[in-house]
């Protein structure tokens, strides 16, 4: 078994290549020029707030939308030239479930295998294999409407892999799932990568999900603002993040700047600053600043900090867009109704 310490530098073939992708809807430019390259066997993450252009970009790569400008190649095929060829080589797991609730898990997989021309001789074997991998073998004969959200997602992952794609695209794979299920899905995805060698491309707005990717592109307002491994990106934040609250934040900020030489950013009563060595900085701050310091906290930089540094906004603070809210409401409403 070959073991390498870092995917960086391994000459994997570029399995996804995008160059200058633009998508315009009338006046609105959802994607403003995106270049990226994903290597074979990578787990690649697209991190950004809602409305940043993640779903639009992934839709272009999956041949669901045609780009207004720019080119993209997936599995060596141009998405505009031969979309059907691309689709035969990719698997898709959407944000909203796309299963047939009235059919059983196995029947859903059989439908997919049939429509993707999986040879009859291997169909059953592959279905069994994928069911085992996502641990749904015992529930395969139940109707999907009896499945939990996590089970449905796992079934969709199994389904996406049935035709042995080169790339598996996932749009917000663990959205709306509880922590345990999220963990199990990450485990399954990793297993897929190691046992099947599939390249995984996912969009997410969860930072912990992005952490487990090999490389991440941070996207904001239709453009990539950063690209690299999670560690590389976090190194862009210069050190630790120290946060304090104060009843007199203006005075505190002034003093921190004058005495300690650091300019904090301000959010109401909270001051935030990046310092090389938080452990040494905090005692100094508490000793030397005379303005009241009510609370102090410190953390290692997270991807949210990276985003904040690059864009001035926090990923998690972005409110859900109106469209997302409507969809979430509709989902809850429909789930309550009997079909």
């Amino acid at each position: 078994m070959n073991v390498v310490t870092n995917v960086d530098g391994v000459a994997g073939d570029a399995v996804i290549q995008a160059s200058g992708l633009v998508k315009r809807y009338g006046e609105l430019e959802a994607v403003k020029g995106i270049d990226l390259e994903v290597r074979a066997g990578e787990i690649f993450g697209f991190l950004g707030p809602n409305g940043a252009g993640k779903s639009t970009t992934i839709s272009i790569l999956c041949t669901l939308l045609s780009p207004t400008a720019g080119t993209a190649r997936v599995a060596g095929i141009d998405v505009a030239y031969d979309p059907a060829g691309v689709r035969q080589r990719i698997g898709l797991v959407f944000q909203d479930p796309s299963l047939d609730d009235q059919l059983t898990g196995r029947e859903n997989l059989e439908f997919h295998a049939f429509i993707y021309s999986v040879p009859a001789a291997v169909r059953r074997q592959r279905i069994d294999e994928m069911l085992a991998l996502v641990q749904l073998a015992d529930r395969a004969s139940s109707q999907v409407k009896t499945y939990s959200g996590g089970m449905k997602r796992r079934l969709e992952i199994a389904r996406g892999m049935l035709h042995q794609p080169q790339v598996l695209f996932l749009d917000e794979p663990t959205l709306g799932l509880d922590p345990q299920t999220r963990q199990s899905i990450w485990t399954h995805l990793n297993e897929l990568r190691t046992t099947k060698g599939v390249t995984i491309f996912m969009t997410t707005h969860y930072m912990d999900e992005a952490e487990f990717c090999d490389r991440i592109a941070i996207i904001d307002q239709g453009k990539i603002v950063a690209l690299g491994t999670p560690d590389e990106l976090k190194a862009m934040v210069g050190g630790d993040v120290v946060t304090i609250t104060s009843s007199r934040p203006d005075d505190a900020a002034r003093e921190i700047k004058e005495i300690l030489g650091v300019t904090p950013s301000r959010d109401n009563g909270t001051l935030r600053m990046e310092v090389p060595d938080g452990k040494a900085f905090v005692p100094r701050l508490v000793r030397e600043v005379t303005a009241p310091v009510d609370t102090v906290s410190m953390h290692r930089p997270s991807l949210d900090d990276v985003f904040l540094k690059l864009t001035g906004r926090a990923i998690r603070d972005e409110a859900a867009s109106a469209g997302d809210q409507n969809r979430a409401m509709a989902r809850r409403f429909m789930a309550g109704r009997r079909r």
Binding site: V10, Y81, Q164, K196
Partner: peptide, 24 residues
């Protein structure tokens, strides 16, 4: 520590667009 992937399916050369009639 990450494990190098098992070799994936070879990417076919850029052929003519897929014949989808049978599939259809």
């Amino acid at each position: 520590m990450k494990v190098a992937p098992v070799s994936s399916a070879a990417a076919p050369a850029q052929a003519a667009p897929a014949d989808t009639r049978m599939a259809t």
